[in-house]
C-alpha cells in the first residue's frame, strides 16, 4: 500500500512537471502537434480538452517498444450522472496512432485501466477522457523508446 501511495505521488509529480513544462514551452494545447492526429481531431469534433484529472502512468524510458505498460486513471465520482464514459489512448508516432479506447460504466466504480502497447519510436502518448457530462480532458507523457516495436 505504501509503495502504491508513493508511486501515485511520484506519478503526480511527473504529470505536474510534464504539464508545467509543456505550458512553459508556449504553444497552447489546442495548437500542439497532437491536434494533427486525424483520429483525435475527429473525436474532439472542435471541442477543446481541459488539462488535468487524468493520471497517465507510462515508463519514461522503454527499452523494448514491443511491450510498454500503460496505466491510466481518471478522477471521477463514477455516478450515473457524472462518470467517465471513455478513455482514448493515442501514440502519435505509431503507424496507427490510435492505441485503444476503454469504455466505462458507473458500475466500474473507478475509471482506471491498464494494458500493454507497442511503440514504434520515442514519442508522445496522449490520453483523452470523455465524461458523461460532455467534458473532455487530456493528459500526455513522453516515452523514450530504445528498440521500436513495429515492423521487424
Amino acid at each position: 500500500m505504501r509503495s502504491a501511495a508513493s508511486g501515485a505521488a511520484a506519478l503526480q509529480r511527473r504529470v505536474f512537471l510534464t504539464l508545467t513544462g509543456a505550458s512553459l514551452l508556449a504553444a497552447p494545447w489546442a495548437r500542439g502537434a497532437w491536434a494533427d492526429v486525424p483520429e483525435m481531431k475527429k473525436l474532439l469534433a472542435g471541442r477543446t480538452p481541459k488539462q488535468g484529472g487524468i493520471t497517465l502512468d507510462v515508463p519514461a524510458i522503454a527499452e523494448n517498444g514491443m511491450v510498454v505498460p500503460l496505466n491510466i486513471a481518471a478522477e471521477s465520482p463514477m455516478t450515473d450522472a457524472d462518470h467517465i464514459k471513455t478513455l482514448h489512448v493515442f501514440a502519435e508516432g505509431n503507424p496507427n496512432p490510435m492505441v485503444a479506447s476503454f469504455s466505462f460504466t458507473p458500475e466500474c466504480g473507478r475509471a482506471a485501466a491498464s494494458t500493454r502497447m507497442r511503440l514504434a519510436q520515442t514519442q508522445n502518448i496522449v490520453v483523452l477522457a470523455e465524461t458523461s457530462t460532455g467534458e473532455v480532458r487530456v493528459a500526455n507523457a513522453e516515452v523514450k523508446v530504445t528498440i521500436g516495436g513495429c515492423g521487424g
Binding site: P97, M98, A100, S101, S103, C108, A112, S114, T115, R116
Partner: peptide, 17 residues
C-alpha cells in the same frame, strides 16, 4: 467494461479494469 484495441496493442494482450 469494454476495450477497443488497435494494432498498437502488444501481443498477448493484457487488460485490467
Amino acid at each position: 467494461f469494454a476495450a477497443d484495441w488497435n494494432p498498437s496493442v502488444s501481443a498477448n494482450p493484457y487488460q485490467s479494469f
